[in-house]
Computed example of a mutant assay.
Amino acid sequence: MIATGAALWAGAAAGESDPASAARAASAQLEQAALDLQGAKAARDRVHALTETVRAYEAGLAAMRDGLRRAATRETMLAHRLRAREGEIAQLIGVLLTIETAPPPVRMLHPQGPLGSARSGMILAEVTPALNTRAERLRHDLEEVHTLRLLQQSAARTLEQGLAGVQEARTGLSQAIADRTDLPRRFAEDPVRTAILISSTETLDGFASGLSQIAAGGEIADSQADISASKGQIALPVQGVLLHKAGEADAAGVTRSGLVVAARPRALVTSPTPATIRYRGPLLDLGNVIILEPQPDTLFILSGLAEVYGEAGQVIPEDTPVGLMGGAVPENGAILSLSGDGTGTERSETLYIEVREGGSPVDPETWFRTDKDG
């Protein structure tokens, strides 16, 4: 059975709180993803199975990075705390050694006689639990530092296997999509008409308004699709965080009609609803673009992908992979070296999402739910 990455990550996040446990849970996620990959190769619906496997790997790698970051942060904090208490620790060890090595008769004698010995015994009885508590706390901290260091050392092999596994799953997914022949089609794309439209338009507006011209014979079958009931509740097509809302200026002062979402390199992009692929490929200065039509007179435009899947005219189910983000996945050593960096710089790729209704752009947040980070 293929386990979803989202479910695995939710379980780990809910059940594990300390850094070591979180990293171990992430390792288990990656091991499960490797098993899922073996099952996906023989699955009847390989596209669906491999999609879930890629997500499981992505979730596991993200969780591993988070666990290692937390482990590194915790180890640094403990190391600082132990260094700051070096004097106290030395004094504590000295006291404990003195108590341990003094012969019993000497411990029982006191210059003031039996009364002094009794008083000393009472004081020692009160002090000993506190000393034991401090010693136990010190032992726990030292053991935790040792555990965290071993965990970070053992993470190298797990990460290497996970990075190789997700690459294999992505390659398999790309091939499975190329081999798929069972999808219905609303039209057949005319490459000549498409090329003419691209060369004759200078804006996304112009291209979107001329999409009906790219079909062979100019005929596109009618669609009765209606997703209006999902308005405002549709998940983003990529796991990421919202960088800019519609109409919000970016660092260069540029405002756009759509959303900008930050995602990790090579993140999987899926169709958020059932839809017709109206166009896929390079367009203007937007990089690779895929234009989806979930219902008549409504377009979801996704740009900034490195790879796009599918063919224009295909009607695809919800959650179908439509492409991959660009960028280079950090190598094993880079992930380990950045495990203490919590700046979020690993989300280096951006996906632009624009929604058009009746030929005009509308705020994508009227359709997409953006209150959850992926």
Results as ranks from 00 to 15, higher is better:
residue 103 P to F: 10
residue 57 Y to R: 00
residue 355 V to S: 04
residue 53 T to G: 00
residue 364 P to M: 09
residue 290 I to Y: 04
residue 66 D to W: 01
residue 331 E to Q: 01
residue 159 L to G: 07
residue 189 E to M: 10
residue 83 R to Y: 11
residue 31 E to L: 07
residue 157 R to H: 09
residue 310 G to Q: 08
residue 109 L to D: 00
residue 161 Q to G: 08
residue 211 L to D: 03
residue 351 L to S: 04
residue 97 L to V: 00
residue 259 L to V: 05
residue 244 H to Q: 12
residue 23 A to I: 05
residue 134 R to A: 15
residue 217 G to V: 13
residue 181 T to K: 15
residue 363 D to V: 12
residue 186 R to Q: 11
residue 120 S to C: 12
residue 112 Q to S: 09
residue 137 R to M: 06
residue 259 L to T: 05
residue 211 L to N: 00
residue 234 I to G: 02
residue 205 D to M: 09
residue 14 A to C: 06
residue 63 A to D: 12
residue 265 P to W: 03
residue 337 S to T: 12
residue 58 E to S: 14
residue 114 P to N: 12
residue 46 R to H: 05
residue 212 S to M: 10
residue 184 P to K: 11
residue 194 T to H: 02
residue 75 E to G: 00
residue 347 R to I: 04
residue 212 S to T: 12
residue 210 G to R: 13
residue 162 G to R: 13
residue 63 A to P: 11
residue 323 G to M: 00
residue 293 E to N: 03
residue 298 T to F: 02
residue 371 D to S: 01
residue 152 Q to N: 13
residue 206 G to E: 15
residue 195 A to C: 02
residue 274 P to V: 07
residue 132 N to W: 11
residue 328 A to F: 02
residue 157 R to L: 09
residue 262 A to Q: 09
residue 270 T to Q: 02
residue 239 Q to E: 13
residue 307 E to Y: 10
residue 152 Q to L: 11
residue 314 Q to H: 14
residue 141 D to E: 15
residue 281 G to C: 12
residue 14 A to N: 06
residue 369 R to P: 04
residue 48 H to D: 12
residue 352 Y to P: 00
residue 345 T to I: 07
residue 301 I to L: 14
residue 121 G to C: 04
residue 62 A to P: 01
residue 322 V to F: 13
residue 83 R to C: 08
residue 244 H to D: 09
residue 152 Q to W: 00
residue 4 T to Q: 01
residue 257 S to M: 04
residue 237 P to S: 04
residue 293 E to L: 02
residue 206 G to L: 12
residue 18 D to Q: 07
residue 286 L to Y: 14
residue 3 A to S: 08
residue 298 T to G: 05
residue 343 T to M: 13
residue 95 V to I: 11
residue 22 A to C: 15
residue 249 A to M: 02
residue 54 V to K: 10
residue 244 H to F: 11
residue 55 R to V: 01
residue 55 R to K: 12
residue 52 E to A: 07
residue 29 Q to R: 07
residue 82 L to N: 02
residue 22 A to F: 08
residue 103 P to S: 13
residue 227 I to Y: 06
residue 127 V to E: 14
residue 71 A to N: 14
residue 46 R to C: 01
residue 110 H to E: 04
residue 52 E to H: 07
residue 40 A to Q: 08
residue 96 L to E: 08
residue 318 E to G: 08
residue 281 G to Q: 08
residue 223 S to F: 10
residue 338 L to M: 13
residue 315 V to E: 06
residue 17 S to K: 14
residue 192 V to D: 14
residue 19 P to A: 15
residue 273 T to Y: 05
residue 89 I to M: 08
residue 232 G to Q: 00
residue 31 E to P: 01
residue 329 V to Y: 08
residue 168 E to A: 10
residue 187 F to T: 06
residue 71 A to E: 09
residue 180 R to W: 11
residue 247 G to N: 12
residue 223 S to H: 11
